[in-house]
């Protein structure tokens, strides 16, 4: 992996966020934030509570429509303007996400959660239901393939034994991993993780770090990470963006961020106050 310093200037980042502004009535949640995420990089977004991190995610994944700004995703030479697209089209374009408060399909089995994630692929194979209803071979083949992909990610997240259990019955840490596995089953170009280490014990956090590094290195997926656990952030990030009160206050490698006076001020308060 390249070190992140030069990546902001690289000509074709995976994701370009330009002048993103989000207002809710009079409240400015994000104020003119610009940054870029390189392909196959882990980009962390950090900041104190209420800094607007999750709002950035919600704009990226189509849950909010940004007031101002342009969000460009580049994949296979194509440019997708995310700010104009609906949520499910954004997911189809290659942005997958997990949620701060885990959102699994808790009454469906673990395997089903991963199969649902491959909906669009399977929908085509089932001839938009018609061919599947009459039991065409092509659909059962596609389903078997989908199960293989699901199995691959279950192995990576160490959930194979629980495949047929209800997702709601998994332990907390397992649910977090399953959410990542589900997002990866959509075969994304950009994986957005909203506090994946929240509530994990140190051993689980370490496993999570390994999983994220594995995803970055072998699957050519850019990762956008919101995280409060600074040890995780500093350990695995290639590039860090710091937000405070909706504004970007710093942008750089972990070493640069560690020394940045603005960041220290935001986190620890100003000296002498």
């Amino acid at each position: 992996m390249t070190v992140a310093a030069g990546i902001v200037e690289s000509a074709h980042p995976l994701l370009d966020v330009e002048h993103l502004t989000m207002r809710f009535g009079g409240l400015v949640a994000i104020d003119d934030v610009s940054f870029a995420a390189a392909p196959s990089d882990i980009t962390a977004i950090i900041g104190p509570n209420g800094a607007g991190k999750t709002t950035v995610f919600n704009c990226l994944t189509g849950f909010y429509r940004p007031t101002v700004g342009r969000l460009t995703l580049r994949r296979n030479g194509q440019e997708h303007l995310l700010e104009r697209m609906e949520g499910h089209h954004i997911a189809q374009a290659g942005v997958a996400r997990t949620f701060q408060n885990i959102r699994l399909f808790s009454q469906m089995s673990v395997l089903e959660n991963l199969i649902v994630a491959q909906h669009n692929k399977l929908m085509g194979a089932s001839g938009f239901t018609v061919l599947g209803l009459i039991g065409m071979r092509s659909y059962s083949d596609a389903e078997a393939e989908a199960v293989e992909l699901a199995k691959y990610w279950l192995e990576k997240t160490e959930l194979v034994e629980r495949a047929d259990d209800d997702a709601g019955n998994l332990a907390y840490g397992q649910q977090r991993r399953l959410e990542i596995a589900r997002a990866m089953c959509t075969e994304p170009a950009l994986l957005c993780l909203d506090e994946p280490a929240a509530g994990l014990n140190p051993r689980e956090s370490a496993e999570l770090e390994d999983l994220l590094l594995f995803i970055r290195d072998t699957h050519d997926v850019g990762i956008l990470l919101i995280e409060h656990d600074m040890s995780v952030v500093m350990e695995i990030s290639d590039h860090i963006v710091v937000l405070d009160y909706g504004q970007k206050i710093a942008d750089g490698t972990p070493e640069e961020i560690r020394k940045d006076p603005a960041v220290i001020r935001a986190y620890l308060g100003e000296e002498g106050k």
Binding site: F63, Q92, R97, R103, M108, E112
Partner: peptide, 18 residues
Amino acid sequence: RAWEALREDETASQSLGI
């Protein structure tokens, strides 16, 4: 399966491209 996913969580379903 998409119906059941929608029943369980509409937001998550949408984030998976449904």
